[in-house]
């Protein structure tokens, strides 16, 4: 397939992930949708690497994976700490910045 198909697929997955972030209330599910968005970007990078004919895109995708892993670790630790304090995993409960 020409790389454009992969990029189109990546766009679709990215948008679906974005909608998921906006619509879901469970914090863990929101996190997972963010992971979906990151994966979609990875796919696009790999497709561009194939388009250019060098491996730079793959290296970038590799680093993205590493960073995503670190981010997940810290994010979930924060989630655990919040859950311990508040007994709720809903994203809507953190609304103290309300007007």
């Amino acid at each position: 397939m020409s790389p454009i198909h992969y990029v189109a697929l990546s766009v679709i997955l990215f948008v679906i992930g974005g909608v998921g972030v906006l619509v879901r209330r469970n914090a863990i599910v929101v996190f997972m949708c963010i992971e979906l968005m990151l994966n979609a970007c990875n796919l696009a990078f790999v497709a561009f690497a194939r388009m250019h004919g060098n491996l730079d895109g793959q290296v970038i995708a590799f680093f993205v994976m590493v960073v995503a892993a670190a981010e997940v670790v810290v994010g979930l630790a924060i989630l655990m700490a919040i859950f311990r304090a508040r007994r709720s995993a809903s994203v809507d409960d953190a609304n103290l910045l309300k007007y």
Binding site: L9, I16, V19, V29, L36
Partner: peptide
């Protein structure tokens, strides 16, 4: 795509 939709 189907799995992503199901996910959300």
């Amino acid at each position: 795509v189907g799995a992503a939709l199901a996910m959300i």
